[in-house]
Amino acid sequence: EFTQISGYVNAFGSQRGSVLTVKVENDEGWTLVEEDFDRADYGSDPEFVAEVSSYLKRNGGIKDLTKVL
């Protein structure tokens, strides 16, 4: 089950073990991109978060400006 990723309007994530599946949706709710990120592939949590965040930004993730990150 996908849940909204904090700080984004149209990005959602689903966690299974160490694998986080993220997706970005358009205004109609269609999935634009979907990608798996395995936490085990990264040396640290900040590196993992930075990679996921960068992916979302590159692929149309819209920041939720009503929330302070």
Rank of each mutant, 00 (worst) to 15 (best):
N59S: 07
L20P: 00
N26A: 06
L20F: 09
D64F: 09
V19I: 12
R58F: 08
R39C: 08
G29I: 02
F12S: 05
G43W: 07
T21P: 00
Y55H: 05
L20R: 01
I62P: 01
V49H: 14
G60T: 03
V52N: 02
L65H: 10
S18H: 04
N59G: 02
A50Q: 09
Y55S: 04
Y8Q: 05
G60S: 04
T66F: 09
I62Y: 07
S44F: 02
E34H: 09
K57M: 12
K57P: 05
R58G: 07
S18L: 06
G60E: 02
E34P: 02
S18E: 03
S14R: 15
V24H: 01
S18N: 07
G61P: 03
N10A: 02
Y8E: 03
E35H: 15
F2Y: 09
N26Q: 05
E35A: 15
G13C: 15
D38Y: 04
L65D: 10
I5G: 04
T3K: 14
S14V: 13
W30G: 12
T66K: 12
D38N: 08
S6M: 11
L20T: 03
K23D: 00
N26H: 07
N26Y: 06
T3R: 14
N59H: 12
T3W: 13
T21F: 04
F37P: 01
F12Y: 12
E25F: 14
D64R: 08
Y8C: 10
G29A: 04
D64C: 14
E47W: 03
D41M: 10
G13I: 13
V9N: 06
Y8K: 06
Y55C: 07
Y8D: 03
V22E: 00
D36A: 12
R39Q: 02
V19H: 02
I5H: 04
E1A: 11
Y55P: 02
I5Y: 06
K23A: 04
R58E: 11
T31G: 06
E34G: 05
E35L: 09
R58L: 12
D41F: 08
D27L: 13
A40C: 15
L69H: 13
N26R: 05
R58H: 10
Q15D: 02
V49S: 09
V49T: 08
E35S: 10
D38H: 03
T21W: 05
G61N: 02
A11G: 03
K57Q: 14
V9P: 03
Y42T: 00
V33Y: 14
V33Q: 06
V52R: 00
L69M: 11
L32E: 05
N59Y: 10
K63C: 14
P46H: 15
K23R: 14
G17Y: 05
L69V: 14
V22I: 10
R58T: 09
D36F: 09
D27G: 10
L65K: 10
N26T: 09
G60D: 01
N26D: 10
E47K: 02
Y55W: 15
D36T: 14
E1P: 09
G43L: 10
V24C: 04
S44W: 03
E28I: 09
S18R: 06
K67I: 12
G43K: 11
V49E: 14
G17N: 03
N59I: 08
N10F: 04
Q15C: 15
E1F: 11
Q15K: 11
S14A: 12
A50Y: 09
S18T: 12
D45L: 12
F12V: 06
S44R: 01
N10D: 01
F12P: 01
S53L: 14
T21Y: 06
D64E: 10
A11N: 01
D38T: 02
V24A: 00
L56I: 13
G17E: 03
A11E: 00
R16L: 07
P46G: 14
V9Q: 07
Y42W: 06
S18I: 04
F37Q: 00
F37K: 00
Q4I: 13
A40T: 08
F2R: 06
F2S: 05
L56V: 06
D36K: 14
V33S: 12
D64Q: 09
G60Q: 05
Q15E: 06
E1T: 11
T66Y: 09
A40W: 07
V19D: 01
K67Y: 12
N10I: 05
Q4L: 15
L69K: 13
I62W: 04
D36V: 14
D27I: 11
F48W: 07
S44L: 03
G61R: 03
G7T: 03
N10P: 01
L65F: 11
K57N: 14
N59R: 02
S6E: 13
F12W: 11
K57L: 12
S53H: 15
Q4C: 15
V9I: 11
E28P: 04
L32F: 07
S54M: 10
L32I: 13
G13S: 12
N26F: 06
S44G: 05
E47C: 08
K23L: 06
F12E: 01
V52G: 02
L20E: 00
F48I: 00
F48R: 01
P46R: 14
E28M: 11
D36H: 13
A40M: 09
S54H: 09
Q15V: 14
E47N: 03
N26V: 05
V19M: 04
L56Y: 00
V24M: 03
Y42V: 00
V52W: 08
Q4A: 10
E47L: 06
F12A: 02
S6W: 13
E47H: 05
A40K: 12
L65Y: 10
D27M: 11
G13A: 13
Y55N: 03
T21L: 04
K57C: 15
D41I: 07
G17P: 00
V22S: 00
V9Y: 07
V33I: 09
D38P: 01
L32M: 12
E28W: 10
K57D: 15
V19N: 01
E28H: 10
G17S: 02
G61D: 02
F48L: 03
D38Q: 02
E1Y: 11
V9L: 13
T3L: 10
L20H: 02
Y42R: 01
S18M: 06
V49I: 13
D45A: 06
Y55F: 15
L32S: 07
G7K: 04
L56F: 00
E1Q: 12
K23T: 08
D64Y: 08
T21I: 07
Y8N: 07
K57R: 09
K67A: 10
Y8W: 15
K63F: 13
V33M: 09
A11H: 01
L65V: 11
L69C: 15
D36Q: 14
G60A: 05
G13D: 01
E35W: 12
V33H: 12
S6F: 11
Y55K: 06
F37Y: 01
F2V: 05
D38W: 03
D27A: 12
T31S: 07
G29R: 04
K67L: 12
L56H: 01
I62Q: 07
N59K: 04
G17T: 02
A40V: 07
V22W: 02
F12T: 04
D36C: 13
E51K: 09
E25M: 15
D38I: 02
F2M: 07
S53F: 13
I62M: 08
N26P: 01
T66E: 14
R16M: 06
V52C: 06
Y55E: 04
I62S: 04
D38C: 06
T31M: 07
F48N: 00
S54I: 08
F48C: 03
E47I: 06
G60P: 00
S18Q: 06
L32W: 08
D45G: 07
G13M: 14
T3I: 12
F12M: 04
D64L: 07
E51V: 15
K63Y: 12
K63Q: 11
D36I: 12
V24N: 00
E25Q: 15
A40F: 07
G29Q: 04
K23Q: 05
D45V: 08
E28D: 11
T21N: 03
S44T: 08
V22Q: 00
Y42F: 11
I62E: 05
V49C: 15
S14T: 09
K23S: 06
F12D: 01
T31E: 04
Q15R: 15
G29S: 03
L56M: 00
I5M: 08
T21A: 03
R39M: 06
S54D: 15
G61S: 05
E47Y: 03
E51A: 15
L56A: 00
L32Q: 06
L69N: 14
S54C: 14
F37T: 00
D41Y: 07
R16E: 03
R39H: 03
N10E: 02
N10T: 05
K67M: 11
Y55M: 07
I5F: 06
G17I: 05
L69P: 13
A50T: 07
Q15Y: 14
D45R: 06
R39G: 00
A11F: 03
L65T: 13
T21M: 04
Q4S: 06
I5C: 12
G43S: 11
D36L: 10
E28S: 11
G17D: 03
G13F: 14
K63N: 07
E35G: 08
S44M: 01
E1C: 15
R16K: 10
V19L: 05
R58Q: 10
G60V: 01
A40E: 09
E51M: 12
G29H: 05
A11K: 01
F37R: 01
S6R: 11
R39P: 02
S14G: 01
L56W: 00
L20N: 00
E47G: 01
P46T: 15
G60K: 03
K63E: 13
V24F: 03
F48E: 00
T66N: 11
N10K: 05
G29L: 03
S44C: 06
P46E: 15
E34M: 15
F12G: 01
R39L: 05
V24T: 02
E35N: 10
A11C: 13
G7F: 05
Y42G: 00
D27T: 12
K63I: 14
V49A: 11
G61L: 08
V24L: 08
R16N: 10
K57T: 13
